[in-house]
Write a protein that binds this DNA or RNA. Structure first.
Lengths: 286, 286
DNA sequence: TAGTGGTCTAGACCACACA
DNA sequence: GTGTGGTCTAGACCACTAC
């Protein structure tokens, strides 16, 4: 209780800042100040509850905010730990090239989290199922919002579309959930057999007997819905990077709508606008 | 209680699916089935609590999951409503051009919401200040993770950097939080005066007396931290689209590191790889 | 004023990880 | 077994919105 009175004095606090938010800020301040360094365990919930004189549920609300903000990681039965700065795969892209990132999501994971930018490395932590893309299933194309969007993008009624969902696994974890729509069907049963490995973009192009090139791609951010949350093994609402777009045949006919949801803490896409610089110029100073 | 027993039978449910998640799925199913159409109000928490025979806190946990997944919108003192499919600004980009999206974030918002939800008229949340970019402040460049990243990208020690934070407002709401780092300083006091409007990229280039062009830009997704959550008026953990990158002088010297956090429900970036098609070819069908 | 969601408490039991 | 976080309940009071 006495410790919390002080929190209320923080100038940026609105008048009725709830207790759990003040607590969250206090914990954040301790982390920023190094009182709980990266990797350290926070006091347990009962300990924090006793220290601040608040109910354990209030403590949990505060810690939950920090977890959603990716400040701490909660490990059930073990404790709550300060997260080290995020290390994400950088998927490099030449924005002037037609070939964008085919297969680039299969890039290696960060090995030891080095300081520099080298995303080189060992495949730490691979498990039973290997890395790669695996079919989850071929759900019926009903009237869901995504199905409607796909129909709009492909210029065909929903009833004429086929869909296949996959998951991309890297380093023993599901990293991306993918959905593909094509303006024909049905797809070969073997192609959409759950568990089947493959590169679905290539597989679908082969099934159709055409070459595909990019029409457009878009980036957005959404929270994981209940289905994606289960597929990716993350809590609902986890920030996902959405990369969607249309590929077309060489003559410009739309042939594929793809929508990938990638765990935001795992990857980012980098677009280079200049040729690589071998000499690394000094930073500009006026 | 009787209604919930059935939920446990769903094949995809892990053995110990908590009550609140089964409830969330049940509500999601009702929404998908159209029992609660877009824009409709869900039963109040006490009503749901009574209907399912669970505590109100459990109901709140379920609804909170749906809210994080952007399925419903909770309005305090009013009720919980089914969200219509997201309408996001599409910021169009020619990836082959050096000039990427300067000023594009200032693109118009979707005008009349075609749906019935009237966010028109009353500028709720909108206040005195109009649209545009506004300086929030020039925080000291300490050793935060972002500061370290900026120093790395600009190739200068943290001590030699200056930083300015801004917020971009559109349609009466804060849509993006921006941070800029430059490898010199201090910046003119007038330029970083809190509340000052301007286009900070242009202002900083002018202050340095150079022209800037893009070196690289990257897209990622993160949850809002406590500071961004307050700036943008969203809950902590809200999915944000992060667009970051380095701009350099014409001879390639890094001169600016910028990091924008954009409310994921507001915008997406679209990259076009083909010339606009006037004739809109028919979709490909094998 | 009535009804909504937001916060907080006290207490209980459970699932999990680890020694 | 011990301690951790996860779930659930019952009850209370508060803040906000709309009428």
């Amino acid at each position: 209780m006495p410790g919390l009175r002080r929190i209320g004095r923080v100038a940026t606090n609105p008048p009725n800042t709830p207790l759990y938010r003040r607590l969250a800020r206090q914990l954040q301040e301790r982390i920023d100040a190094g009182a709980y360094p990266a990797g350290a365990r926070l006091p347990s919930e009962p300990e924090l509850s006793a220290e601040f004189g608040v109910n354990r549920l209030t403590v949990r609300q505060a810690v939950a905010e920090l977890e959603r903000a990716a400040v701490v990681e909660i490990r059930r039965g073990v404790g709550t730990f300060v997260r080290p700065p995020a290390v994400r795969v950088s998927i490099t892209v030449d924005p002037r090239s037609q070939r964008f990132d085919l297969g680039s999501v299969h890039a290696a994971l960060p090995g030891a989290d080095d300081r520099g930018d080298d995303d080189r490395g060992d495949d730490r932590g691979g498990d039973d199922r290997g890395d790669g893309e695996f079919v989850v299933g071929a759900p019926p194309v009903a009237g869901s919002a995504e199905d409607e969007e796909a129909a709009r993008q492909l210029g065909r009624p929903v009833a004429e579309l086929s869909r296949v969902d996959t998951v991309i696994r890297l380093g023993g974890r599901a990293r991306a959930a993918c959905s593909y729509w094509v303006p024909f069907g049905p797809l070969p049963a073997e192609l959409v057999r759950p568990g089947r490995p493959g590169n679905l973009v290539l597989d679908l192009a082969r099934a159709a007997g055409v070459e595909l090139e990019y029409d457009w791609r878009a980036f957005g951010a959404i929270g994981a819905d209940l289905a994606d949350a289960e597929l990716l093994g993350v809590p609902a609402g986890t920030p996902l990077l959405v990369r969607e777009g249309v590929s077309c045949t060489p003559d410009g006919a739309p042939a594929l709508y793809v929508r990938r949801r990638i765990d935001g803490s795992s990857a980012r896409f980098v677009l280079h606008f200049r040729e690589p610089r071998p000499d690394a110029p000094q930073p500009f100073v006026p």
